[in-house]
Nucleic acid binder design. Structure first.
Ligand code: SF4
Ligand code: SF4
Lengths: 163, 163
DNA sequence: GGCAATTGGCACCAAATGGGTGCTAATTGG
DNA sequence: CCAATTAGCACCCATTTGGTGCCAATTGCC
């Protein structure tokens, strides 16, 4: 399915809240109070984001989370990769870790593998070209996104922001 | 997950084969002989594509399938919509049929709903800008796809049969 | 020190989704 | 009539997803 998971949505909401609270240490409880979503799952998302180096955290009584970088340095692609794995479009094009668990039988003669890889790179360009900051900017149109993603056309994921 | 279903992949493979066999009536058996994929599932995909008006069919002994239109008139977005539903990115932005089954509690205060809708339109533009013909053209780069999708920027889906 | 608030880690469960199969009817050329 | 083919629908099983339980570790504050 071409749809984000709830964990990713929750993580994005949390990140935007952190972006609006720069300079502070924000506990999960606070985010849960502002948005009616299951606090525990939200905590799971933040933990994953922490492991991925997108947020940093502080334990203890006055602990919480904050963005590890500026909101303009965190891309959507990075967040999605951390929370639900990088978008793959096809199941064969994973090459992350689970490519050894039995390859697709069609692969040697598959006519769509290569074309869909190109398409996936287009989507990646979109996701890598969108940062938390540009996400929060409501003036950008889809056409702007396409144009912005089209110009740098950076590395096919794995690299840092181009903005 | 941001990944196509197997049914969609099989359907696309079948469609490309049909595109290479224009003027003929192709039975499912023939496609199954050329590509090592479960014939039954392939048949399911073709049936769905038939219901969506993307392919036409003929029953009986010399029956089979053929493209309802030219390969340049069939878009990826249309195929995906027929085989696994239109890409939604978020679960709330479905508005197809299952929007009455309990809305998301966060929606009234959700900070990512509108931004992700813009993003989704960008992805849709990519998918609607890619036809079977351009899919089969290996010379197009991701940048070309983005550029091609950016210029027409047609309707955000919805003017298609989709039912 | 002790307590409460907080993150970290792991296992687990229930529902939804996805991949695939069985079976049978309807159509049609020979 | 027969064989090949599409059409329809129900069903099963594995994986994924959304969500919870439980407890350990850390840390500010009294
Ligand atoms: S080889 Fe082709 S059919 Fe197999 S997973 Fe890749 S794209 Fe899909
Ligand atoms: S309202 Fe927000 S949290 Fe709810 S489904 Fe839509 S995007 Fe996700």
């Amino acid at each position: 399915m071409l749809q984000l998971t709830k964990r990713t949505e929750y993580g994005l909401i949390a990140l935007l809240h952190l972006a609006n609270s720069e300079g502070r240490v924000v506990p999960v409880r606070e985010i849960g109070e502002r948005f009616p979503l299951p606090k525990r799952v939200l905590a799971e998302s933040l933990k994953d984001l922490g492991r991925a180096g997108i947020v940093e955290s502080q334990r203890g009584a006055a602990g919480g989370y904050w963005l590890a970088r500026g909101a303009g340095q965190i891309t959507l692609g990075e967040v999605i990769s951390a929370l639900e794995g990088a978008p793959t479009l096809t199941s064969c094009q994973d090459l992350g870790a689970s490519n050894a668990r039995g390859q697709c039988e069609v692969q040697p003669v598959c006519p769509i593998r290569s074309p869909l890889t190109r398409l996936r790179q287009g989507i990646w360009a979109l996701l890598e070209g969108t940062t938390l900051r540009s996400l929060a900017n409501p003036s950008l149109t889809p056409a702007d996104l396409l144009a912005a993603a089209g110009s740098p056309l950076s590395s096919p994921l794995g690299d840092q922001p181009a903005a």
